[in-house]
Nucleic acid binder design. Structure first.
Lengths: 208, 208
DNA sequence: GATTTCTCTGGTCAGGTGTCAAGTTTTCTG
DNA sequence: CAGAAAACTTGACACCTGACCAGAGAAATC
């Protein structure tokens, strides 16, 4: 049995620690989650956090990066499996709703972090990188949607991402507030918005 | 000269304090801005904050409410003055860019507060109320735009607000990051998005 | 002018913060 | 297996936080 590379082990520990921290961070948010609280809700002592991470920011950024890395792959399946434009939209909307239900704490943490980055310059680079990853993900979904609809995207990925992120954020807030219709509203909105992101390609709609 | 009503005076003091606090809050954000720091950057002592506000949350909510109250009226002029649909879009986009340049600290504070409300239930009511006010504002702009274009809105105000807020947020973040193109991008995006928010009313575009 | 009410000050308090240095245990290596 | 290195624990530190309060001063009222 090959012994684990020390570097890999170090990294594995960081990942495990970050995984634990994510739960607490998602529960309390960036400001309220102290390193002690994070350590308490984990099998580690509070000193070990500082052993693996330079400071709180370092930890947080690592955590959110780790989460969003898996998050963006969530929609690749839907993109690959879809055989019709409408089917893709439905699958995409479903995944969005699912992730609100399943990962609400993670998403609010992300929005918290992004807001903090407007104040704290040292967060900007990580936030921008994650934002770009999400934008690419939206770009892929829209591109495939356009392909299936026999047309092409009509807006830059940046714009499409901004629009969808906006309604997603509203839905998340609504869901957390206990609004029962929040998810259905989001689903309907996605169905309405997606066709706006591509050139009108339906044979039934022509310019004269 | 009529003496000021005691209640009015009390309220005037709260407003002045909130006004002072807004500067510090916009600079540091909700978590970092301590009541002492807020008081230091003001003509008041830190004790007086507790005399006029129950606690920190009370102060913050009052502050953001106060700012957003004037904020939403910013676009009413553009709506009233516009004589053409394109003119309205241009004026609206210009105002959005202006407010990013002039009031970036206030807007980031608002997004900070909204993110905090996802964790702190006691903030939800105020945030939802402000969100609704902003939604109404967007609704008015879109309604007038549709009117000038001889058509009608095609999406609920909630959706239109979500979409525009999303790209606005991206532009704010870009602007704060020193991206020079952020404002131009936003302007272009608004010009692209607005026509999507109303039914295609141009005689040249018909369903067959 | 006396008295009550309002306004404000500045200090105190208990609790929490990130950070770090000094130990202790575990793991690896020669 | 001895010794070195890595991994981890613990407790302490200096500092800051929001909340609270006793009392000084100003204003209003009688």
């Amino acid at each position: 049995m090959a012994r684990a590379n020390p570097v890999d082990k170090h990294d594995a520990r960081r990942r495990a620690l970050a995984d634990s921290a994510l739960r607490t961070l998602g529960e309390l948010g960036y400001a309220r989650a102290s390193l002690r609280e994070i350590a308490n809700n984990s099998p580690f002592s509070h000193g070990v956090v500082h052993y693996y991470f330079a400071d709180k920011l370092d930890l947080i950024v690592y955590c959110v990066r780790q989460y969003k890395a898996v998050c963006v792959t969530r929609y690749d399946g839907a993109v690959a499996d879809a055989t019709t434009a409408d089917g893709l939209v439905a699958a995409f909307a479903d995944r969005l709703c699912e992730t609100i239900v399943d990962d609400a704490p993670m998403h609010r943490l992300w929005y918290d972090l992004r807001a903090q980055s407007m104040f704290e310059e040292s967060l900007r680079e990580a936030v921008e990188q994650i934002d770009r990853t999400l934008e690419d993900m939206v770009g892929r979904v829209v591109a495939r949607y356009a392909e299936l609809a026999g047309t092409e995207p009509s807006l830059p990925a940046h714009t499409a991402y901004g629009m969808l992120d906006g309604v997603f954020q509203q839905a998340l807030l609504g869901h957390l507030s206990g609004e029962p219709a929040a998810l259905d509203t989001l689903r309907a909105e996605v169905h309405q918005i997606m066709p706006l992101l591509v050139r009108a390609g339906r044979p039934g709609l022509v310019r004269v």
